[in-house]
Amino acid sequence: MRRRRIKLAGTRILLTGASTGIGRELALQLASEGAELVIAARRADLLEILSQEIAAAGHPRPFPVPTDLSVPGAAAALAAKALEHFGHEIDVVINNAGASLTGAQSRIGDADTARTVYEVNLWTPLAMGAALVPTMLARGKGTIVHVTSTIQSVPLPLLGYYGSSKSALAQATRSLRLELAETPIRVVEVVPGATDTALRDIDELPWKANPPKTLPPVTPKSSAEAIVRGLKRGANRIVYPRYSLVPLEFPAFGRLVARIGGRRVNTRGALDLGHLGDRGTS
């Protein structure tokens, strides 16, 4: 599909996971470009603060919708509210909300905490598409953005739920792009690498000693800027930082990194504890 640049001024965007991290910075960046926003996250107070900050800067005030996307059906309800707010004309949906869980799959199994990760990371974006694609097709335009993760190519121990849910979303994104290839709808995958946010998985792993040395994480602001640049130029995949392309394009490298790093994780202790921690919807 030929790249179609997006002029963000006046564009109507539904953004999930907007209260913190990349989502918050993305809301600020999009608003500064003149986009009209519906923003969603669990915490109403953080959404209200963000809305006030954007309005105080002289940009269109976002419409905040407090939503817990770990609840089945919440995504469809959010889409309906956004459509109603925008007069049934949404140009872009950015599925940025994420949830994670650190722990042993052999102990956690399909517990509710594990199912929550999939509800937020996979089922929510798919539900959004089902709710919004018909309207986009009727209007003859639209963009669906799925935020995945570099972890899809680095299968670290104890991060199986987060990694597999993001891998599933990445595969679904590629498939959806082909499904919609003969339509005016654009499908974009955003692949963040190491970013200094609350969902940074390396901080949650139980290391035997010190964590391995890695490249410094990038800031949420720089990630948001990269996403906005990619959307404006019509990219189908936005990877930031750029070195994160290595495990994506050379999966053997990602598996090697996971194998070497995995030896330093206290997996035996995790098997005793089972569930180490979860981080809810952003």
Results as ranks from 00 to 15, higher is better:
P206G: 04
V65D: 04
G87F: 14
S222H: 08
H85N: 07
A252S: 11
V93A: 14
R12P: 10
L199Y: 03
N266E: 03
N236C: 04
R61T: 01
A97Q: 11
T214A: 12
D45E: 15
T102W: 01
A75M: 08
F63G: 03
A252E: 06
G34H: 11
S19H: 08
L248M: 00
A270D: 11
L159V: 11
G34P: 05
R237A: 08
F253A: 00
G277M: 09
A18S: 15
T124L: 07
P216V: 04
A77W: 07
V117I: 07
V71K: 07
G163P: 00
L256F: 15
P247E: 00
A138L: 12
E225R: 07
L137C: 06
I6V: 13
V154F: 02
G193M: 03
I151S: 15
D45Y: 05
R264L: 06
Q105L: 13
A75C: 05
I39K: 07
A75H: 05
G10H: 11
T143C: 15
P60L: 10
L137K: 13
N121M: 03
M1S: 14
L83F: 10
D203K: 06
R200H: 06
L122A: 08
R268E: 01
I49F: 03
P62I: 08
S244D: 02
G129T: 12
A181E: 14
T113G: 02
D203Q: 05
L271G: 05
G274W: 04
L26H: 00
K7R: 13
L158F: 08
G23T: 09
L176S: 09
A27N: 08
D203Y: 02
L215S: 10
P157H: 01
Q152G: 02
G17E: 10
R229V: 13
I227G: 02
L156S: 00
S19T: 14
A131M: 09
A40M: 09
L8G: 03
P241T: 13
S282Y: 12
A55Y: 15
D68W: 08
I238C: 03
A181K: 12
Y161G: 13
Y240W: 12
P64Y: 08
E179K: 05
R229S: 13
V71M: 07
S51C: 14
S223L: 01
E36I: 15
G109N: 07
A127T: 15
A74T: 01
R264K: 06
R4D: 10
V239G: 01
I227R: 01
A131D: 05
L137M: 13
Y240H: 15
A111F: 03
A55W: 14
K232T: 02
L176V: 11
A194Q: 06
